[in-house]
């Protein structure tokens, strides 16, 4: 036959499992990175001063400079054995009554591991942006709240943080865009599931970006061009999603930053 390939009766193909895997890992990574990032930013901006603050700031920002394969390698050597042998069995036992946390806890390669490693890769962005945003809040607000008898933490939490809401949303969406496109680290820790939807939080998954790399071999040995074109389709969907998300984030950030930048 020309220009086609024989498909087994009853077989069907789709990228739903990739879209689900991508969105779930990204949601988990944001759920871990946003609270941790905001907490760390509060502590950095309000509780620390001088050399220590500078040193830890540099440290957290160094995280952003580490190539993603190194995160993947670290995940492979350290995180997977630790999570797979100690944390996941414990979680499955302690939180087993919640359906998504119920066992089997798996080998350590999976959704939660990928989300955890991803969250570390995006957290520097959130910490750095939020630290600067909190520090940039007007001193008068701070003095007024302290003058009313609020403690320093109440001042930060109730007065300064609400002012940084738009920055947080913008930084989160930028982080989301970065997490969507992350390839190598996810490839090395996610378990690279094929045609299955995850049934719990420990199950192996594939993301769109990592799937393109893991199918490198099919692209190379492909006389019909079928694999190359299907992968191009995945790349197209991934590109559209990330470009839309990035445009959204930039619009939000530009809207926020516009009055300050024009002075």
């Amino acid at each position: 036959m020309r220009g086609g390939t024989l498909i087994q009766p009853g077989a069907n193909y789709g990228i739903l499992f990739l879209i689900v895997g991508t969105l779930l890992t990204v949601v988990i990574s944001l759920a871990l990175a946003v609270p941790a990032g905001v907490g760390a930013a509060i502590f950095l901006a309000e509780a620390m001063t001088g050399g220590l603050r500078l040193a830890i700031s540099i440290m957290v920002e160094l995280l952003a400079a580490i190539p993603s394969v190194v995160f993947g390698l670290w995940g492979y050597i350290v995180v997977i054995p630790f999570l797979g042998q100690h944390v996941f069995p414990f979680l499955a036992g302690a939180l087993g009554f919640i359906p998504v946390f119920a066992g089997p806890p798996g080998s350590g390669y999976g959704l939660l591991t990928a989300g955890f490693v991803l969250s570390l890769m995006i957290v520097p962005l959130i910490v750095a942006t939020m630290r600067d945003a909190i520090a940039a809040q007007p001193t008068t607000l701070r003095e007024a709240a302290l003058g009313l008898g609020a403690t320093r933490f109440e001042t930060t939490w109730n007065v300064l943080l609400p002012g940084t809401r738009r920055v947080l949303i913008g930084a989160t969406i930028l982080a989301l865009g970065r997490a969507l496109g992350e390839t190598m680290a996810v490839l090395m820790v996610s378990g690279n599931a094929l045609d299955m939807l995850p049934n719990n939080i420990y199950a192996p998954v594939s993301t769109m970006a990592s799937f393109i790399v893991s199918q490198l071999d099919s692209a190379l040995q492909d006389p019909l061009g079928l694999a190359v074109r299907s992968l191009a389709e995945i790349a197209l969907v991934l590109m559209l999603i990330s470009v839309v998300i990035n445009a959204l984030a930039r619009m939000l950030l530009a809207h926020f930053a516009a009055p300050a930048a024009r002075t």
Partner: peptide, 22 residues
């Protein structure tokens, strides 16, 4: 106040710890 400082300090501690681990 106390739990807020404790949690945000903990977040920073965990992040630096993981960084050192890498």
């Amino acid at each position: 106040t106390i739990s807020g400082w404790a949690l945000s300090g903990l977040a920073l501690l965990v992040l630096t710890g993981l960084m050192l681990s890498i």
